[in-house]
Each structure stands twice: as structure tokens, then as C-alpha cells.
Amino acid sequence: MNLWFVWLEMKCPECLERIHDHAEECPHCGMTLERLSSAYEGLELEVHDGVHDVAGVLKLETRKQMRAAVKACEKQFEGVSVAVSFVALRNEQTLEAYGFYLMNLGEFFRGSVWQTEMVDGRGRVILVVDVEGKRVGLSYGYYFDGHVREKENFDVLSAGHASLLEGEMVTGCEQILISLKGLLKKAVTRANAANAVKTKKGVKR
């Protein structure tokens, strides 16, 4: 099946099997957020100005550069927040599960202001870069369910592939964020359209 026709699936972040959109735990591996916490305990979860660097790859200058790129990416959106996380995962840890973990348990700050209560986390997108396993992926909040296609997601990540292969993490992430902006525009437009249809149906009833 061509990925263009595939919407981002609801899958278990641990075993990557499909799950129901109301599943309280994974029917395949029994994973829940609570059970996952033990595997990722001890990781720094504070994300400042959209940049999270537990792998320690960013210097002062490149951190600023990364923050500017995040800000530019989310500038045109309301209700959307973007973050980038650099992490060095251990063997038993997976990029998908880590993205899921950070998405739900991360502490997000804008300057010195704690954002977690102020900004709806369901409109968040996190770019996760595993500097050890050399993998990169995106985690989306619930509001993007059914509005992002796998092909689009793949294309966004592909934008930074060449730079990441060269070891230029910051440049690669910047390129991904520029491309992500386009994807978010499409996703938000689709979400608005779906919302309008839902409202129309509600009014009819």
C-alpha cells in the first residue's frame, strides 16, 4: 500500500501493533504510560523554549539556533507547540516509546514560565533525534489524529536526512522543522475542515 493513503496509525509505541483509539492498555504487550515510566526513569524531562538536549549535542550557539528554528516553525500557528529533543537511547529503549513518554510527561517551559498547564499538550509535536541509534522521528498530540499522512511525515523527515548523515544534527533538524511547517499547515487545515463538518452535523441533529 502506498504510504500516501495511510493516515498516521494509532499504534502501541512499544510493540508498534495497532490499537483501538480508546485502548486503556496495549492488548498485545500490555503497555501503558505508567508501566513505561520505569524504563525511562531518571531522564531529564524539562524542555526549555522547545529544545530538549539530554544527549548534550548542542552548544550555546547551536542551542540558540535551534530555539530560533522552533520558534519560526510554530510562529504561524495557534494551539500548536513544537519541540526538538536530542537523546541517546539505550538498547532496550525505543524512539517511539521515548517520544510518547516525553509528549505526556515532559515539563515544558517558555523562558522561565512553566507551560504545561497553560498550553494544551494535545496540539504538541515533538521531533525526537536519537543521536546514539541514529534515528529520527516525530510524535504528534491527539489533535493531529487522522490529519497527518505517513507519506507526508516521511517526506518531512527526509528533508534533513542528508545533513543528518553528514553528522550535522542542527542543520538537519532545521531542515526538518522548515518542512514540518508545511505539514502542520495542511494538518491544521484538515482539522478545521473536519471540525466544520462535525459542527454542521451537530447543528443538523
Binding site: 502501541c12 494551539g79 491527539y142 489533535y143 511525515n153
Partner: peptide
């Protein structure tokens, strides 16, 4: 671009999101 907000189904005990994309 304003992302519409509202009630959405949650899963796996997570409040914000539980999507998995290709890496």
C-alpha cells in the same frame, strides 16, 4: 493557522498523545 481544540479520545493512560509515526 488555528488548531481546533476539544474533546478527543485518549489511550494508554496518556493525556497528550499516543501516535507513532515511521522513523
Amino acid at each position: 493557522f488555528i488548531l481546533p481544540q476539544g474533546e478527543v479520545p485518549t489511550r494508554l493512560g496518556a493525556d497528550n498523545g499516543a501516535n507513532v509515526s515511521h522513523t
